[in-house]
């Protein structure tokens, strides 16, 4: 560290279009930066892959949630009608699987949806009301026309001036240091 200054979180650059951002992400990766993140007003296809992220695990978790919901309610129905409180209603079978399938289906959907919904919160660490990127003056989702790329300061190859020079060469319309 040369000069004592405010600690940095990273450098944030704004781009005009998603295509510019994608190109910038690719070039930044090629230059060896790894602690990258991007902020966009709407999902940009293929961005996470260019940033070096891996596929998310949401489908697996959702499947597990659905299985717990479905098997859980079927198990509960079987337990309550055959073991806990067998009740002869007009001689109908106690383990009436055809009837049990309806709550079984509904609870599968419910379990899976709850997992997908809250899994998105947990995976994304939401709600997070404070984040350093909100400190940046240029950062705003208000207009929906700026696509941001962040080079994190925790990048082993992070060098403020080098990062800024690179972003400038990629036609960023705004470049700003982000403080934590």
């Amino acid at each position: 560290m040369s000069a004592p200054g405010p600690e940095r979180y990273g450098v944030l650059a704004g781009f005009e279009t998603p295509e510019d951002l994608l190109q910038a992400a690719e070039r930044t990766r090629q230059n060896g930066f790894v602690a990258l993140d991007a902020f966009t007003p709407y999902p940009v296809e293929g961005l996470t892959k260019l940033l070096g992220g891996r596929k998310n695990r949401m489908p697996v978790w959702t499947f597990i949630g659905g299985a717990i919901g479905g098997l859980g309610i079927i198990g509960l129905q079987l337990y309550s009608t055959t073991i806990n409180y067998p009740l002869n209603v007009g001689g109908r079978p106690l383990a009436a699987m055809t009837a049990f399938l309806v709550p079984g289906f509904e609870c599968t959907v419910l379990g899976a949806s709850l997992t997908a919904f809250f899994g998105m919160w947990i995976g994304n660490r939401l709600p997070t009301y404070y984040h350093p990127v909100f400190n940046a003056q240029s950062f705003s989702l208000a207009d929906g026309e700026t696509f941001y790329l962040l080079i994190g300061a925790d990048d082993p190859r992070f060098d403020r001036s080098k990062a800024r020079r690179l972003l400038k060469s990629l036609h960023a319309k705004s470049i700003e240091d982000v403080t934590p």
């Binding site: 991007a38 902020f39 007003p41 940009v44 961005l47 996470t48 994304n124």
Partner: peptide
């Protein structure tokens, strides 16, 4: 609007 957030 993080790219990772959008993906999930």
């Amino acid at each position: 609007g993080s790219a990772y957030h959008w993906s999930r």
